[in-house]
Design a protein around this nucleic acid. Structure first.
Lengths: 343, 343
DNA sequence: ATGAAAGCGCTAACAA
DNA sequence: TTGTTAGCGCTTTCAT
């Protein structure tokens, strides 16, 4: 029951009566080893329950560790979960293991995580950059060959690869869809903070769609929320305005949940809605929720393949890869605007 | 631009003109250091951009690394995402970092992940055990002091702490709710594989509720699905039976999505539904979805605190902690059974 | 208050 | 085919 020291290479070597290096050779299929000793070594490994210390190995071999670091805002957000899964699936065949952490969109927490990951000599660093975070401290690592990839948003202070959704075009298309169905008073419920890249881009898309239709931009129906509860409250406030919007555009998946929940509770199903980012059960709602779907799998996959090609020596210029969004029309965008024939 | 060697403790020492040990002392707030040298060392650290190699440190210090290993079936499943976040939040203050991987419920992948984590000398191992996986290989690690915690399901071949939901009682309550509203023909759509612990427990709860109401168990309306599409198809098949169920019990969150989607598509809103595990937008559906909610945050938190107390020397017997579920009545369970006054 | 030497577990580079 | 030596970057131990 004692907390016995775990067996080392030397223990195995002693057990078999060979040198440590021979055991090492067997385990790593390094140099030549006779079938005999090989068998004995493996037997001893099994007997002692030896497991090589990967950290010790790594220290000696030098170079990056076979881990990748992944910093996302929230492990429980399905969008980032899907991105993470796609990354893992892509790097797994290279034997890389995921080191993960949630930043909660806090620059300090993000920095603490990246520092830890760097101290562990990760092979790749994937970061969803928090608003206000500066990444210039990663510059030396990048020039030293560490692939650094920004996900979902570009990072500040460092020129490196970024994988983002087509936020502006996607939002534009979603809002244009509402306009096409007769809406001229379209509320925008965005996420927070205001400086968040995705929020700004999506708001820009919203504005450009309005502009194309000669609809003036009205700040009083642009509102923000940080979580589902906030979005519910925001929705309620918007609809209680003297001149309420007849349609709403949701700036992200969490906001969409809030809007839909609030409309359902207050029985205001007549309000048209389009959401940025798909949510589960969207098609089961009444009306079914029309969304500008992101492609988290593609984002993760692209991020991973980009990083791996960097790891393989690709020194070309930093790229920003935009992963297309897709308007999925399900009905909620077609709730007729008052005084319209429903289109 | 060259891939320069990263600075080491020795580099910093040389820069300052002190010994490596002195630098080490400063960085770890170990022995006494004069304010002078301390300042110089920190300056040099900043100047060189030195970051201590955590692996080298760990190798020398011995003992477990400041990482925890977490094996879950699917990073993108919001239930496991929520569990993971709660674990991370709890262990973060101890300075522990998350090493994560998806097993896809495949015993081989699970084993590969745990082996990797063990080779990295994780401080704690959290595993959602796959069906068919044997965990006796973890025995020696556990007796050597490594906390091993099973999540969501008990593991096989190893007596250690498990944190599970009150699956049986929860399912019983959900089904009893349907029975209370007049249903006697209640379909069970469970997940796969059939041997999955949660499926068996929830099915047992279903059966006990039926039994209490003297409703015979009818295998023909117990059906299984692995993913949302499968659940949709299964639902369709159930409802196309000559004597279809008037109510459905969903065995997990994914199955619930399938059932709800299929009922919405086929316009069979009259079918009553209760789902095990909450899903987002449940309250926005029509009717709103009644669920037996799990508490993933509490599961994660409990798992983490249990593990930490083990780490702190708690050698008491292995416990199985059951986290209560909660029936959240929202309406879908009250769709009247035909020939009933709606209760 | 600081340093020198040894060593953590492993492998690179050489020898035999 | 196998072993020996040295050393990865750090900390421990013991000196000074």
């Amino acid at each position: 029951m004692a907390a016995n020291r775990r067996p080392t290479l030397a223990d195995v070597a002693r057990e078999v009566g060979v040198s440590a290096k021979t055991v090492s050779r067997v385990l790593n299929e390094d140099g030549p080893v006779s079938a005999q000793t090989r068998k004995h070594v493996l037997a001893a490994v099994a007997k002692l329950g030896f497991q090589p210390n990967l950290m010790a190995r790594n220290i000696r071999v030098g170079g990056p560790d076979t881990t990748i670091g992944l910093v996302i805002p929230d492990l429980a957000n399905p969008f980032f979960g899907a991105v993470a899964r796609a990354i893992e699936d892509t790097v797994r065949e290279r034997g890389l293991t995921l080191l993960m952490g949630s930043s909660a969109d806090d620059p300090d927490r993000e920095r603490a995580l990246t520092d830890k990951f760097l101290a562990r000599r990760v092979s790749i660093l994937f970061v969803v950059p928090s608003v206000g975070a500066d990444h210039s401290h990663l510059k030396s690592h990048r020039t030293a060959g560490l692939p650094v990839i920004f996900l979902d948003r570009p990072g500040a202070g460092l020129a490196t690869d970024s994988i983002v959704s087509s936020n502006r075009a996607g939002a534009h298309d979603g809002v244009a869809h509402l306009i096409a169905h007769g809406h001229r008073r379209i509320g925008f419920v965005g996420d927070l903070p205001l400086k968040l890249y995705t929020r700004r881009e999506r708001l820009a898309g919203y504005r450009s769609a309005l502009q194309e239709a000669d609809i003036p931009y009205d700040r009083s129906i642009v509102i923000n929320a940080h979580d589902q509860q906030g979005a519910e409250a925001a929705t309620s406030r918007l609809l209680d305005l003297a001149d309420p919007p007849t349609a709403l555009f949701a700036g992200n998946n969490i906001v969409a949940l809030g809007i839909v929940a609030e409309l359902a509770r207050s029985k205001r199903k007549h309000v048209a809605v389009v959401a940025f980012d798909d949510v589960s059960l969207a098609e089961a709602l009444e009306p079914a929720l029309t969304v500008v779907a992101q492609d988290p799998e593609e984002i993760g996959r692209t991020a991973a393949t980009t990083a791996l090609s960097r790891l393989d020596g690709d020194r070309s210029r930093a790229r920003t890869i935009t992963v297309p969004t897709r308007l999925i029309v399900r009905g909620s965008g077609e709730q007729p605007a008052p005084g319209t024939r429903g289109a």
